[in-house]
């Protein structure tokens, strides 16, 4: 039994990643779904079910001044590169939003007056859903450990899939091309990039396709709202050809998608044309991206 991992990313936010993932899960019928957009996790809104127990995710640490030992010499403030230590009058205080827990202050302190507390970076849950399991999280506000939390969720998703015999892990990724996106992309078998015919989405498509090439992940493109602006799609299609990424489907603009979402239903439950287009995306993704051996040795594509 082989488990395959398919990531959905976009570069630009708001192109429809989460709606697509919820629909693909329904079309696949059986999957472990991992919401890796940990600072704005929305998949749980489309995949009803009861969460299992809340699990805490600890990552990193934060400095704390032991006042009884602190001589207020200020050496820590000189070595801290994050501006996390400041004097309030003659007291030293730690800005816990700025502290990265590096340990430089403790090393510099002549009085051993710095202690460290483990940092609660977020919470995560496993939710049984109609299609299988949803692994999702909430990163603590203003936390800096999104990449680590994504890596941890991915690991949990993979282990659950292997334990329970799931053949598919779907990864709903964050926007952008930085740290948490690297964690969402690392080691997946294939990538679907959701884009739309706007100059901004096209610009960011180029960046995410460039990143996928570095990770050597076979990539396909889904064009969402392809018909929203007449004629706008052609330029995007030329860009895909130039980037050598296949277009695996075109989804129409459908005002019923947000309407269904507000009732907790995926895009698949919107208009018939939308459902048909999504089914088409899923069958082409299976054929073009998921038919090879797991982990990158796909016979159809050699990466973007």
């Amino acid at each position: 039994m082989k488990t395959r991992q398919l990531a959905v990313l976009s570069g630009k936010g708001g192109t429809g990643k989460t709606s697509l993932v919820a629909s693909l899960a329904a079309l696949a019928g059986r999957a472990v779904v991992v919401d890796c957009d940990v600072d704005a996790a929305n998949l749980a809104l489309l995949m009803p079910g009861s969460d299992g127990p809340t699990e805490s995710f600890y990552a990193g640490r934060r400095a704390r001044i032991l006042e009884e030992r602190c001589a207020a010499c200020g050496r820590c403030t000189e070595v801290c590169r994050f501006g996390a230590l400041t004097f309030q009058g003659s007291r030293l205080v730690v800005d816990r939003l700025a502290c990265e827990g590096c340990g430089a202050c403790a090393h510099a302190c002549p009085n051993a007056a710095v202690a460290y507390d483990d940092n609660l970076a977020g919470d995560w849950w496993v939710r049984p859903v109609a299609e299988g399991l949803l692994v999702h999280a909430r990163l603590g506000i203003a936390q800096d450990n999104s990449g680590k939390l994504v890596a941890s969720l991915r690991k949990t998703g993979r282990e659950l899939a292997e334990r329970d015999g799931y053949e598919l892990v779907l990864v709903d990724g964050p926007p952008g091309i930085g740290c948490p996106v690297h964690a969402a992309l690392s080691g997946v078998d294939a990538l679907l990039v959701v884009t739309e015919p706007t100059v901004a989405a096209e610009h960011d498509l180029r960046r995410i396709v460039g990143l996928a090439a570095r990770f050597e992940v076979p990539t396909g493109v889904v064009i969402n709202k392809h018909d929203l602006v007449p004629g706008a799609c052609e330029r995007l299609e030329r860009s895909c050809a130039e980037l050598k990424v296949p277009i695996l489907g075109r989804i129409p603009f459908d005002p019923l998608v947000p309407e269904r979402a507000s009732r907790g239903r995926p895009a698949l439950a919107a208009s018939a044309g939308t459902a048909e287009a999504l089914a088409d995306v899923w069958s082409r993704a299976q054929e073009k991206l998921l038919s090879g051996e797991p982990n990158g040795s796909n016979p159809h594509l050699t990466g973007a």
Partner: peptide, 27 residues
């Protein structure tokens, strides 16, 4: 940038006032 983790925070930290743009969807 979107989100609520360090990149978004760093951008907001530099401001005196924040305008939050949203849309009438559950997301």
């Amino acid at each position: 940038p979107p989100g609520t983790s360090c990149p978004a925070m760093e951008a907001v930290r530099a401001a005196d006032l924040v305008v939050l743009v949203t849309e009438p969807t559950p997301f």
